[in-house]
Write a protein that binds this DNA or RNA. Structure first.
Length: 362
DNA sequence: TATCATGATTAGAT
DNA sequence: ATCTAATCATGATA
């Protein structure tokens, strides 16, 4: 860690003009040390060190810089300095530090990646987004108009997608530029001080990690944007449509005729959903899903229970209704075959408008 | 426009 | 998993 700081410090003294990364790539601030762990070196060496550190300063005068570099490289003390630096390095054990932590794949980053992929932002091409959106809409149980709102949603999503990709590209490019820049610097410096390939590699790793953390920010904010977009367009609550009269009729019929146990089985729900969807198949399909039937019964049960009085009238109405149809059925049955015993199957026949006195359902 | 009705979502219990 | 209860957001209506 100390060494990294030192390397970064050395870089910090270099003019990185033109390589500023938007959002601020925060290199660790220079540490307290100043590069001379060993004291008592001559002023001469100090000067040379300083020159090394600042050698790539892109001074206005390129020729002058060249001259200085050349001067340094041909300095009579250079070989001696080099070996001294090697020795220092050897002693302080800087050169041998195993390649530590192979960074494990950040779980959060993976989460973000997965989501972006699922949302169709980072996926293959335009098809993915709409498919995911459609799936999401279907899952949310709002199968109605996914044409008008949907195209709007898709447009916005592709906008986000585009921004995301251009930004990503920018980061990628900046990262590469910066990396080559640093590599060049190190290569330059390796002529006057010992730099192992491992160090360079580590340096590159550090840079990449920094950039990937920036990328993560980008992914994070993109995810947020997508979530907002989704909640804005895909949240079924925002485009609630009341069921058709016939659909509510069917559902209410079932509810009040099973008042003592208004919990339709899965099959019953499917049946009801189908029946509701069939009604008035005019216009854009008002298909009702099983999930919606479940929602309806959930709401109905709780609301009925909460205020039975309010639903008295409705209950009577539907009770009468089913009574009439049942009576007809019974009459028909009686007329058709005497052997048929007309005991109605479900939970005690058509219930007269009778309610549990304690207000509880089941 | 205030208010109720209603479909969907959510947390938490079972 | 499915249900309840509370809540949200919108539709319908007075």
């Amino acid at each position: 860690m100390d060494e990294q700081a030192r390397i970064l410090q050395a870089l910090g003294g270099v003019n990185l003009a033109g390589h500023s990364v938007q959002g601020g790539m925060a290199l660790p601030p220079p540490h307290g040390h100043d590069g001379s762990d060993v004291d008592g070196r001559k002023q001469d060496i100090g000067d040379i060190l300083h020159q090394i550190m600042t050698i790539t300063d892109q001074s206005l005068d390129e020729a002058q810089a060249k001259h200085r570099k050349h001067g340094l490289n041909c300095h009579r003390m250079k070989p001696a300095l080099f070996s001294v630096l090697c020795e220092i390095k050897e002693k302080t054990g800087l050169s041998i530090r195993g390649a530590q932590e192979e960074d494990p794949p950040d779980p959060q980053l993976m989460r973000l990646d997965n989501m972006l992929l699922a949302e169709g932002v980072s996926g293959p091409e335009k098809g993915g987004g709409s498919a995911a959106a459609a799936a999401a809409a279907a899952a949310a149980g709002s199968p109605t108009d996914n044409s008008i709102e949907h195209s709007d949603y898709r447009a916005k999503l592709s906008q986000i997608r585009q921004i995301y990709h251009t930004e990503l590209e920018k980061y990628e490019q900046a990262c590469n530029e910066f990396t080559t820049h640093v590599m060049n610097l190190l290569r330059e410096q390796s002529r006057t001080r010992p730099i192992s390939p491992k160090e360079i590699e580590r340096m590159v790793n550090i840079i990449h990690r920094k950039f990937s953390s920036i990328q993560m920010q980008l992914k994070q904010s993109t995810c947020e944007a997508v979530m907002i977009l989704r909640s804005r367009f895909l949240d079924a609550r925002r485009k609630r449509r009341n069921f058709s009269k016939q659909a509510t009729e069917i559902l209410n019929e079932y509810f009040y005729s099973h008042l003592s146990n208004p919990y339709p089985s899965e099959e019953a729900k499917e049946e009801l959903a189908k029946k509701c969807s069939i009604t008035v198949s005019q216009g854009v399909g008002t298909t009702i899903t099983v999930a919606q039937v479940s929602n309806w019964f959930g709401n109905k049960r709780i609301r009925y229970k909460k205020n039975i009085g309010k639903f008295q009238e409705e209950a009577n109405l539907y009770a009468a209704k089913t009574a009439v149809t049942a009576a007809h059925a019974v009459a028909a049955a009686v007329q058709n075959s005497q052997t048929n015993s007309p005991t109605t199957p479900n939970s005690g026949g058509y219930p007269a408008p009778c309610y549990q006195s304690d207000g509880r359902i089941q």
